[in-house]
């Protein structure tokens, strides 16, 4: 029970940090700005205005959400290590596992609040411009959120292994490779010198972030079946568990010099 309350304390403080550092506010502001831009573009289009608006809204959510996930995932964890603010905390009854998982929970909650605010912004824009509040959008937003949770897990893993600069580069690398996983798989066609085991290894290790992309499907009005969403959830859960487990093992074993 004590362990859970300590984990919650770390999570709550992490969320408070993201709010106080005002980074979220700026990015939410930008997301709303993108949605408003979508509104203007929608007025210029003929018949496609609702689809364009949804497209831009979901793309902005994905883009800004990913930026936030990388920024806070790397920034807040590296800062704790580099500035040594965790020293007095880890000398208390707080275990390293509780700290690491509490940090993760706080970051995930931040992403949840962020994506919830953006979702409300998108629905408000749709309603304000006389279009319906399509609940089907949630079938695209939920997988986006799962993808962001996975990005945060990778960012935390890299933050425990290396400097914040390199951790950012590695996280961005994984996100890009995961979003263009077909390019990775077809790498040998472009670069035949690359050994097969490298391509196979990368394909096996890097998650396919396209699995979380239902934006086109939803904006065209195609429903996303529940079992597909369930499969995506399991896919994300397995990856997050593995990546977070590696991060936790690294965090537990490291010396804080």
């Amino acid at each position: 029970m004590g362990g859970l309350s300590r984990l919650v304390a770390v999570a709550a403080n992490t969320f408070r940090e993201t709010v106080r550092e005002r980074v979220l506010y700026n990015l939410v502001f930008f997301a709303i700005l993108m949605t408003l831009s979508g509104l203007l573009l929608g007025q210029l289009s003929i018949r496609q205005d609702e689809k364009v608006l949804k497209d831009i809204g979901l793309a902005a959510m994905d883009f800004f959400g990913t930026l936030i996930a990388i920024f806070i995932g790397v920034g807040l964890v590296s800062k704790e290590i580099e500035r040594r603010s965790l020293y007095p905390l880890l000398a208390k009854p707080l275990s390293r596992g509780e700290f690491f998982l509490g940090k993760f929970a706080g970051l995930v909650f931040t992403l949840l609040v962020n994506i919830a605010v953006m979702t409300l912004g998108l629905y408000a824009t749709l309603l304000a411009t006389g279009r319906g509040a399509d609940p089907g959008l949630l079938a695209a937003i939920y997988p986006i959120f799962l993808g962001l949770v996975l990005v945060v897990a990778f960012a935390m893993l890299f933050s425990t292994l290396t400097s914040s600069a390199l951790a950012s580069v590695l996280t961005v690398g994984v996100v890009l490779a995961g979003r263009f996983s077909d390019v990775v798989r077809n790498m040998r066609e472009v670069l035949p010198a690359v050994p097969t085991w490298v391509v196979d290894g990368l394909s096996a290790v890097i998650p396919n972030f396209r699995n979380f992309d239902f934006k086109d499907r939803v904006t065209y009005g195609d429903p996303v079946p529940g079992d597909v969403l369930l499969w995506v959830t399991v896919y994300a859960a397995v990856y997050v568990t593995i990546v977070l487990g590696l991060g936790l093992a690294s965090f537990r074993s490291r010396d804080f010099q």
Binding site: S5, A9, E17
Partner: peptide, 23 residues
């Protein structure tokens, strides 16, 4: 710790409350 860095976005009351929660 030597040269402690405490969370600068918190007030001392908030920081001590956080420390107390860990106990």
């Amino acid at each position: 710790p030597e040269h402690p860095y405490l969370y600068d976005y918190l007030t001392p009351s908030e920081y001590l409350d956080y420390a107390g929660r860990l106990f």
